[in-house]
Design a protein around this nucleic acid. Structure first.
Length: 843
DNA sequence: AGCACGCCGACT
DNA sequence: GTCGGCGTGCTC
């Protein structure tokens, strides 16, 4: 058999399988999904086996053999390899890039060289003076140490690089290249019972009163023969590791290094919980999902439940049902919501069979959790976006909580959306997808409405064949009312002479909470909030010299920085343009609010959560714990305070400026604003104390804000869909954005023109209509090229083309073909092209 | 991505 | 006459 291998070179020219012979000794071991090291163009690279074929099918003569197999158990299964191919086509990225996101970073092997003296040289040691290298210090070093890593040799003898290279070429040195994982297996000294228990028992019985602590240690391990980490035992017996090593020397116990399975949640002791009785609303929903699970039907459900309607309990019980059928479950949660409380709920119900995957784990921890899944020791994976690729054998259920969250979209290549990948993966496994949200994305909502009603909104989504099923959960579990939301018109405040960022009503409400000892959450909707530098005399603003964007002022370092390229410079004391000293720096939005709070409410205790204060590992949790312990009166933050928090003493939620995100040049601006407001409103009064929400706005008549105030998703969706249809935006069409960038302006524009015309030609010959006739039928329209919203970034000019289409027109394939046609001999187009597929709801 | 092959300028 | 510039082309 020969193996078809995708090598780890992310370029268009190498984005196809290369064939290799499977050496005799690896016969039967190499499978689809295996990770291998292969010789490729004079070096050894990591690759994935994506297919096996009989010898007869290829020209065997020019084949090289696979150099090595990197894992005993293939890290990927054939269905994941297939899914990777789907991702690569859908999102226009190399196959290897898609394969790479499916495995933990620890397995991203790199080639590593080991050199040693070749055999003849070793034998001829006595032939002193024969070789010119012989007197070289590095030669002696290799002779003394045997096999030496080339990297180490270069480090130790940096000036000898040429000599070493020559020796390898001449054959004096033998070089062996292999792939090494970036993996450090953590080893821990561990205490075991002695080799000879009987002898130890006897020795203990007759031992003198000396070495009492050593005897104690020996006694312990004989009575509790479970291996225990050395440090832990020393601590338990309040002695030192040295003492216990003494006992080991006497043969009373054994100490060995053992590989430790990192368990980031070790020692937390999760309390097991039992399924709660479901309320009527929950039961109906559960029954529908359970039926689909039992029938192994690839169905998609949209669980539209208001905050507090008990979605999580439904998740837990459907997972249980899935596990009983010996299929595994994946739960996706937004990165930000993956809090210890969240994990606790799953570990509490399913114990050790839960694997947790998120970005804050170290690469080793992540690898261990992943391996738990791969080796079948876990049946439930809870994690962020990439957990959709959890290497389960039989996936029965994929739950996506808060499905509307934008964090399900990956910003780097492959720019996939976890929701769309989940639907695809579910098709492979005949699995059920459950999308949960209080404020569903309009894509999902429309897809789910299609099955309910025959109204036009639905049929407009061209390729919705059977659609998704809407499962409404309009009731809150304990019957608690949703909090009252007050809108404050900030224009009236201004008219009334209040120029502060706090309205009188919010000021009053905050004061009240302080007096009562209750807590408040303040949200600064920071999107669109600028932190730029401006001269009040001449209007000068500081711009990045490499990007067409304003520089951002950072209070901490007193520096001006560019968000996009990282350029930093000292903040000026006078205006560089007019030399006026009336130059103002605005700190980050939250900092300004914090300062104003301190001014208005002396002694107020504020926790500020934003990018500046939560970058450190664990800081996020730390602040929330502090707030939970009522060590602060106010939790002030951006988006991140809107999600998943649940504190009993929070009775006030204030939104400083609801509209900052409303007028962004983004067709989803209203949707995002509505979602944010609805979510943050749900943070108040979740327990006995009633909650109140104050929303400050300059647009109190905007439907996104009014609907959020009334907790009315349906009317928001109706209004927003009207706009989307009128403007011909998703979900009434689909979008792919191609951004081209290069140092030379003329070249980017020219390539943009070429791309657009190539695409139009391709579409025409594929027989797809070129414009939207408004009748819901399929079309593909290519817009642009036009300058990007940020026309220059990192000294590169940027243009974009937009592909707007509806129905199954193979847009990604056409784009892939077009890029290939524009590509030169190196397989790459002359300018950089980045493809961004707008999140869809592919059914 | 790397690395080789290949065809034109400034050095021994 | 050679060393080396980086433009095309290939890697099983």
């Amino acid at each position: 058999m020969i193996a078809r291998v995708i090598v780890d070179v992310p370029s268009r020219a190498t984005d196809r399988p290369f064939d290799y012979k499977i050496p005799e000794n690896l016969n039967g071991w190499v499978e689809v999904g295996s990770r291998v090291g292969v010789p490729f163009g004079g070096r050894v690279l990591q690759g994935f086996v994506v297919g096996l074929a009989p010898y007869a099918d290829v020209d065997v003569k020019k084949l090289k053999p696979i150099a090595e197999l990197l894992d005993h158990l293939p890290p990927l299964s054939p269905d994941l390899v297939e899914l990777a191919r789907w991702v690569s086509e859908k999102y226009c990225c190399p196959w290897t890039t898609a394969l790479q996101v499916m495995i933990p970073a620890a397995l991203k092997g790199k080639a590593d060289s080991v050199v040693s003296l070749s055999e003849e040289e070793e034998c001829s040691e006595e032939r002193t003076g024969f070789l010119t290298e012989e007197s070289e210090p590095w030669f002696q070093y290799i002779r003394n140490n045997g096999e030496v890593r080339l990297a180490l040799l270069q480090e130790r003898f940096p000036e000898a690089a040429a000599g070493i290279k020559a020796a390898i070429r001449r054959g004096t040195l033998r070089e062996e290249i292999s792939i090494r994982d970036r993996l450090k297996v953590r080893k821990v000294w561990t205490v075991f019972p002695p080799e000879d228990t009987a002898a130890a028992e006897a020795a203990l019985a007759s031992a003198s009163s000396r070495a009492a602590k050593q005897q104690e240690a020996a006694r312990y391990i004989l009575d509790n023969p479970e291996p225990i980490p050395l440090a832990a035992l020393a601590q338990a017996l309040s002695t030192t590791t040295g003492t216990i090593r003494g006992a080991a020397d006497k043969g009373w116990l054994t100490i060995r290094e053992m590989e430790q399975q990192r368990d980031p949640y070790a020692g937390r002791g999760f309390k097991r919980t039992e399924p709660l009785p479901l309320m009527e609303g929950q039961q109906t929903v559960y029954n529908e999902i359970a039926e689909a699970l039992d029938n192994e039907a690839a169905r998609v459900f949209l669980l539209h439940g208001v905050t507090g309607s008990g979605k999580t309990e439904v998740y837990l019980q459907t997972i249980d049902r899935c596990l009983k059928a010996e299929r595994q479950a994946i739960v996706l949660v937004p990165e930000i919501a993956l809090t210890p409380q969240m994990v606790e709920r799953f570990k509490g119900r399913f114990g050790d069979s839960v694997a947790v995957l998120h970005s804050r784990l170290s690469s080793g921890e992540r690898y261990d959790e992943w391996r738990k899944i791969r080796e079948g020791r876990a049946e439930v994976a809870v994690g962020a976006r990439s957990a959709v690729f959890a290497p389960f054998r039989r996936v029965g259920l994929i739950i996506i909580d808060e499905e509307h969250e934008s964090s399900y979209k990956q910003e780097e290549s492959p720019k996939y959306h976890a929701r769309d990948v989940a639907v695809q993966r579910a098709k492979q496994h005949q699995a059920v997808v459950v999308l949960g949200s209080a404020t569903p994305s309009l894509e999902s909502f429309v897809a789910a409405s299609a099955s309910r009603s025959q109204e036009g909104t639905a049929s407009a989504n061209g390729s919705a064949k059977q659609g998704a099923t809407l499962l409404p959960m309009p009731e809150r579990v304990a019957g608690r009312p949703l909090p009252k939301v007050h809108l404050v018109d900030m224009r009236d405040e201004l008219k009334g002479g209040n120029r502060s960022m706090f309205s009188r009503q919010l000021h009053e409400a905050l004061l009240q909470r302080l007096e009562r000892g209750e807590q408040s959450v303040l949200l600064l909707n920071r999107r669109g909030y600028s932190t730029f530098v401006m001269c009040r005399s001449c209007g000068y603003t500081a711009q990045c010299p490499h990007c067409d964007i304003s520089l951002t002022f950072h209070q901490k370092s007193k520096a001006l920085r560019c968000h996009y390229c990282g350029h930093a410079e000292q903040a000026p004391t006078a205006c560089p343009s007019c030399e006026s000293e009336h130059i103002r720096f605005f700190g980050t939005g939250t900092q300004r609010v914090e300062e104003e709070l301190a001014k208005l409410f002396p002694g107020i205790r504020v926790i500020r959560m934003d990018v500046d204060t939560t970058t450190e590992k664990g800081s996020h949790e730390k602040w929330l714990t502090m707030f939970g312990e009522r060590k602060a009166d106010v939790l002030l933050g951006t988006q991140m305070v809107a999600k998943g928090l649940d504190f009993p003493y929070v009775t006030l939620v204030g939104v400083i400026a609801a509209d900052t995100s409303l007028h962004l040049p983004d067709f989803r601006a209203a949707e995002k604003t509505f979602q944010l407001l609805t979510q943050v409103a749900g943070r108040a009064g979740r327990h006995e104390l009633p909650g109140e929400v104050i929303v400050q706005t300059y647009n109190p008549e905007h439907y996104a804000i009014i609907s959020a105030q009334r907790h009315d998703y349906a009317s928001f969706a109706q209004e927003e869909l009207k706009h989307r249809r009128f403007m011909a935006y998703p979900p009434f069409c689909r979008l792919i954005l191609v951004t081209l960038s290069h140092e030379q302006l003329a070249l980017v524009y020219a390539e943009g023109e070429k791309l657009a015309s190539t695409l139009r030609d391709l579409a025409r010959s594929a027989g797809v209509r070129g414009s939207d006739e408004g009748d819901g039928s399929r079309f593909i329209d290519i817009l642009g090229p036009v300058a990007s919203p940020i026309p220059r970034m990192k000294d590169r000019y940027r243009f974009q083309c937009m592909i707007k289409y509806r129905g199954n027109v193979g847009a990604s394939e056409l784009l892939g073909q077009a890029i290939s046609l524009l590509s030169g001999a190196n397989g790459q187009p002359p300018v950089t092209m980045s493809v961004d597929v707008d999140p869809q709801m592919i059914l």
